[in-house]
Amino acid sequence: MDTLSWPAAATRFLALRLPEGAPLRESLQEAFDAQPEEGGFLAAAVGSLVHARLRPAGLTEPRDIIGDLEIMTLSGTFSADGPHLHLAVANADGRMTGGHLLDGSVVRTTAEVVIALAGGVRFTRPEDPGTGLRELAFE
Rank of each mutant, 00 (worst) to 15 (best):
T3L: 15
S5V: 07
S5Y: 12
S5T: 12
W6A: 04
A8F: 09
A9P: 00
A9L: 03
T11N: 00
T11V: 14
R12V: 08
F13A: 01
L14D: 01
A15P: 06
A15K: 10
L16M: 13
R17I: 13
L18D: 01
P19Q: 13
E20L: 10
A22G: 10
P23W: 06
R25V: 06
E26L: 04
S27V: 01
L28M: 11
E30I: 00
A34D: 12
Q35P: 00
Q35D: 06
P36C: 02
E37D: 08
F41M: 06
F41L: 09
A43N: 06
A43F: 10
G47Q: 00
G47T: 04
L49F: 09
A52V: 08
L54A: 03
P56G: 05
P56N: 06
A57Y: 10
A57T: 08
A57H: 13
G58R: 10
P62L: 13
R63I: 14
R63S: 14
R63G: 02
I65A: 06
G67M: 09
G67H: 06
D68G: 07
D68W: 05
L69A: 08
L69C: 07
I71A: 08
M72P: 00
L74I: 07
S75Q: 12
S75A: 13
G76Q: 07
G76A: 09
F78Y: 12
F78T: 04
S79G: 02
D81C: 03
G82E: 11
G82D: 09
H86Q: 01
H86L: 05
L87G: 02
A90K: 03
N91G: 04
R95C: 02
R95V: 06
R95G: 05
M96V: 14
T97A: 15
T97Y: 11
G98R: 04
G99K: 09
G99C: 08
G99A: 11
H100G: 05
H100K: 14
L102K: 12
R108D: 12
T110I: 02
T110M: 10
V113A: 03
V113N: 02
A118E: 07
G120T: 05
F123G: 01
T124V: 10
T124Y: 05
T124M: 02
R125F: 07
R125S: 01
P126L: 02
P126R: 05
D128R: 04
P129I: 13
T131P: 09
T131S: 15
R134W: 14
R134Q: 13
E135Q: 14
E135H: 11
L136R: 09
E139N: 11
